[in-house]
Design a protein around this nucleic acid. Structure first.
Length: 191
DNA sequence: CGCTTTTGACCAGCGC
DNA sequence: GCGCTGGTCAAAAGCG
């Protein structure tokens, strides 16, 4: 994944305003890798270039073997066959366990995962009627990284949104620029 | 007082 | 059917 590309937030907040300076001031972590799981889990561009070290945590690798790719394909297709809702995973180099994305989350579970030294935390969006979930865990292979998985799409605006990476995309919420220019910030305490 | 976090229990899916 | 594992529930405690 060497090319620059953008990802538009599925949870738009058209009211947000942010300047480049605010953006610079707000930077406190960078996304290393990220993946979009939508209806087409089996997209070649995704699967052919990935390896799955464990579960649904997927690292980008441009030199994965065909065998590994096939294993990933089977695993992912099987796991997400019945799912059609939005799913998005990203890997972030951060000292912080939990990053503020502007939304309010309520922790509803914590689980020790097999073969992982770090627990996985489960969150639900606190907004009434919004059933978006996210899972947060440290990368078992490199604890400097945090794996965050979002499931679902918010049906409301971001309550504390100061989230964007690009003025022209303010109408979309936030945008990712590979490899490390996504930023989040908020005037509220971190979660 | 209301909201969040913690944490043990419970449930469902899967492999054997 | 049984055991293992991941995901969720819910009661109790904590906090502002």
């Amino acid at each position: 994944m060497n090319t620059s590309f953008q990802y538009q937030n599925p949870n738009p907040n058209p009211n947000q305003e942010i300047t480049n300076q605010q953006l610079d001031d707000s930077l406190f972590f960078g996304v290393s890798d990220y993946f979009l799981f939508e209806d087409g889990y089996g997209e070649e561009t995704f699967l052919e270039n990935t390896v799955a070290p464990s579960e649904n945590v997927v690292n980008v690798s441009s030199n994965s073997s065909p065998v590994a790719s096939n294993m990933v394909r089977k695993t992912i297709e099987k796991k997400y066959k019945a799912q059609s809702e939005f799913k998005f995973v990203f890997r972030t180099k951060s000292n912080m366990e939990i990053m503020d994305d502007g939304f309010r989350w309520r922790k509803y579970g914590k689980k020790i995962i097999k073969n992982s030294p770090n627990p996985r935390n489960y969150f639900k969006c606190s907004s009434e009627g919004c059933n978006v979930k996210k899972r947060v865990e440290r990368d078992r292979e490199d604890p400097r990284y945090v794996m965050t998985t979002y499931e679902g799409v918010h049906n409301h605006e971001c309550p504390n949104c100061v989230v964007s990476c690009n003025n022209q995309l303010n109408t979309h919420g936030w945008t990712l620029h590979q490899p490390s220019s996504l930023s989040f910030s908020s005037s509220s305490p971190v979660l």
